[in-house]
Design a protein around this nucleic acid. Structure first.
Lengths: 156, 156
DNA sequence: ACATAGTACTTAAAAGTTGAACTATGTCAA
DNA sequence: TTGACATAGTTCAACTTTTAAGTACTATGT
């Protein structure tokens, strides 16, 4: 590689290290808390959230795997487990014989309703409450820009 | 649970969603890139980085597992694999018969030296370059506060 | 209509992670 | 000293994720 990339300076390095640390630790804290209060993993919870927010409480497998940033086979197996527990089920897609919908069941809806308040409390404690209100607009802007640019790169 | 936790408002929700998205996506991008350019996973790389920055290129297993937020058994097995590849080795701790050091080998040092410029370029592209210079001081502050508070909670 | 290529999802085996039990050593008070 | 308890690290079985095929359907070109 050509050496046209400067090393990270002090401030850049602080940002990168802290980012790594924070994303690891928030994930660990929320996972831990979700597991003990509801028996769900973070991955389980995110599946249920995405379904609960979708039209007819259903999403195509591929669409869901993209949203979760999971491989298709990983999603296949997670849906297997969630449906064994009765929280989701599969339905064939009527328009496309290859397709399958993951569908939230009433039991799944109930589980996520029960879990949500705990989870919100944890998100506040781990993230939101630690950002001063006056800092929030900038933080939201920066994070959304990062999310958008990253997504654009994936697609483009 | 008592219903004393308000739901996330619009701005809080944007922050949380974007954070989730960004941390997932940056991790995916960097992993992908590291793997194709150097054959290392992110976890491998982080082990080597921590060792390379430590006194005598070595760290106690437990200390390293804390820094990486990995379980001890996960670290044991990662060090097994890295030492099979010749990038690290184990040395008994002379002061404490129970203890083991993970030690970076010259081959491991070389690997990380080769990997670093690619990785830095990726970190810039995925994170640093997307934050305006004038935003960086605040972003650094917020992230470090999040990292610190989270760590304090783990310990206390 | 048929071959070809592409898409959606699943399966199976290998690789990695978790969590509890286990080994070995260290610490400390009686 | 000894016994009780704590700490450092590994091992093992169960589980999850990855990787590489495999199956079944759709789209496209002739």
């Amino acid at each position: 590689m050509k050496d046209d990339t400067p090393w990270l300076d002090e401030q850049e390095n602080r940002i990168w290290r802290a980012f790594l640390q924070v994303s690891g630790r928030i994930n660990a804290q929320l996972s831990e808390s979700l597991k003990t209060t509801t028996g769900l993993t973070m991955d389980d919870y995110e599946v249920l959230v995405h379904l609960s927010e979708s039209e007819s409480h259903r999403l195509r497998m591929t669409e869901l795997s993209h949203r979760l940033l999971h491989s298709q086979s990983r999603l296949t197996q997670r849906i297997d487990r969630l449906s064994k527990r009765g929280y989701v089920c599969r339905e064939k897609c009527p328009d496309d014989g290859r397709g399958t919908f993951a569908v939230l069941t009433p039991a799944g809806m109930q589980v996520i309703k029960d879990a949500a308040p705990h989870h919100v409390k944890d998100v506040r404690a781990a993230l939101i409450d630690l950002i001063e209100p006056k800092e929030r607009p900038l933080v939201a802007d920066v994070l959304e820009r990062l999310a958008t640019q990253a997504r654009d790169r994936d697609l483009g």
